[in-house]
């Protein structure tokens, strides 16, 4: 089984982002591997360790700093990497899920991929569209929001998260696209020996515009704004004051 795993470089989830010029300010902001992609990488590496996958290829689309993110994926255990280079922003401002899925389609075909593992969404744009679109373009079966994945007789069995509980889906034969949810696994840290080994692993670069794909954004972002600031809570001294505030300030008591 050949696995292709998506690795998106996004603003670190612990960073409090700021808006400047109608977009999220990315200057001097800590960027990290998208947490859902990290889970996808971990799952791919486990498939390899379980001898189900023969090769795990990590792929990232974005600026030159994406190689750092790819190195993390390689240090976690991916075999090699593909860096699709572009200076377009990948957080929906320039490059959007349609184009991203198209690039993945090309690479999956070139690579002869059997299983594409992606995060269920990027935490920057929160679209969650790339996986489903990619499955559509390729005409492959898909499972979204994977919470458990097992390789089974040449196929996979995936438990997926739904609002009502979990749903177990059996895909008897590959290829397939799976998007990974939070509970699927707990990703490992990149250890020093593996970081050193990762330096020797191959990273191929391909320019995004060499695929002959329409990279234009077809959806226009009208506005980006920070959530309104919540007023700080106050401490009241006693019950009377609380009741008074609920009546006269909050207006929730008659």
């Amino acid at each position: 089984m050949k696995v292709l795993v998506g690795v998106k470089r996004v603003v670190d989830y612990a960073v409090k982002v700021r808006v400047q010029n109608k977009s999220v300010d990315l200057n001097n902001v800590k960027m990290s591997l998208n947490p859902f992609c990290e889970i996808a990488v971990e799952e791919a590496v486990r498939l390899k360790e379980g001898k189900h996958a023969d090769e795990v290829v990590a792929m990232s689309i974005g600026p030159k700093q994406c190689t750092e993110t790819l190195r993390t994926a390689l240090a976690m255990g991916c075999d090699r990497a593909i860096h699709v280079t572009t200076d377009l922003r990948t957080d929906y401002m320039d490059l959007q899920p349609y184009a991203i899925a198209k690039i993945f389609e090309k690479v999956a075909e070139q690579e002869g991929t059997d299983l594409v593992l992606l995060g269920k969404q990027g935490i920057d744009s929160d679209c969650g569209q790339t996986g489903p679109m990619l499955a559509g373009f390729l005409g492959w079966p898909q499972v979204t929001f994977a919470a458990n994945l097992e390789a089974k007789d040449g196929g996979i069995q995936v438990e997926r998260e739904t609002d009502a509980g979990t749903e177990t889906i059996n895909i008897p034969s590959l290829p397939a696209v799976v998007t990974c949810d939070l509970r699927l696994n707990e990703p490992r840290y990149a250890t020093l020996p593996n970081i050193m080994k990762a330096k020797k692993k191959k990273v191929d670069t391909i320019a995004a515009d060499s695929f002959g794909i329409d990279l234009e954004a077809h959806n226009e972002v009208l506005e980006v704004f920070e959530p309104p600031q919540r007023q700080e809570g106050i401490m009241v001294d006693d019950i009377d004051q609380l009741v008074d505030k609920l009546k006269n300030e909050a207006g929730v008591l008659a």
Partner: peptide, 24 residues
């Protein structure tokens, strides 16, 4: 820094935080 530590065998193992969450 990590390269030297690794080459000189000064550390048995090491992990590098890949995100602020891992740092924390």
């Amino acid at each position: 820094f990590l390269n030297i530590l690794y080459e000189e065998d000064y550390v048995v193992d090491g992990v590098v935080a890949a995100s602020l969450e891992q740092m924390n």
